[in-house]
Design a binder for these strands. Sequence first.
DNA 1: CCCCAGGCAGCGC
DNA 2: GCGCTGCATGGG
Length: 307
Amino acid sequence: VKSSLRLELHAPFNLEATLFSGQAFRWEKLESAEGHPVFQGVVYGEVLQICHNSSTVLTVSSSADQINGLPLQAFASDYLGLDEDIDNAFSPSFCQHYPDLYEAIRQYHGTRTLRQEPFEILISFMCAQGLGVSLIRRQISKLSLFFGKDISITEYKFPSPEQLACADLNTLIQCTNNNSIRAKNIKTISQAITDKELDLNKLIYPNSSFDEARRTLLSYPGIGEKIADCVCLFGLRHCEAFPIDTHVRQYLEHWFNLRPATTTLTSSSYRELAEKARQLLGHTQAGLAGHLLFHYWRLHVRGMKEV
DNA sequence: CCCCAGGCAGCGC
DNA sequence: GCGCTGCATGGG
């Protein structure tokens, strides 16, 4: 550990829910003998440890005093989304119409949407099609183990686009749950980034509009409406993105009686449904509100485990 | 054995 | 345009 600091919180923050609500796949909870648990992750090639010491203080330590060109404190507040206006995640009219639901979700008040590394998020959600979280996490760790650079005995940097572009296809297939189509799609988009055909940084808000970012992503094989929205929300800072997966589809129908026009989600019925959800939840923070509902639905209605 | 997991693409109609 | 199916594997 090179650098360590205290971070003052000025609004409610839920570290555990933020790291384990299904938007980050590589964070670990370290055993702590006593006191508060320490969470560890690898971001931009540096080891980051965070502990929620009290309701108003985080302790952050890292293997570097700068991450992604920012001083540790500035990086951590940005990465964790501490500036998000969580008190307004749900509009006044939503709270008025759904008071019981709003009250139930308050146990996760303080859950943020992380601003993660665009490339890692892109590949992670490309690995997430129709699989459970345990299989998704396994794929991400294998990719890091086989192709990323080792930082220490136990920690691996997530691979770069170059490393995946020139990866041995059979080794890559081993990492992607033996799905050769997925492996090939990951290679294709990694090659496009290596060749500078695709620049994810240009798609980060506000460098590009939400519509342009998702249209660009959709032009690559293996990326559909849902994955494009996940990448936009968790990796590209587009807070109006509203990913619709099987869980979201279920709760939209169960709680709000919102249904897509077709039984299998086509592009147009997906977009139509997402727009209806934005009208219900508000456009500016639809992603955060949807993420909170997603987390609550999975854990408390479906009874799934966090990790 | 079944069905479902943070889906996508290709096909027939 | 819509609906079905293959892709893969672990867990309930």
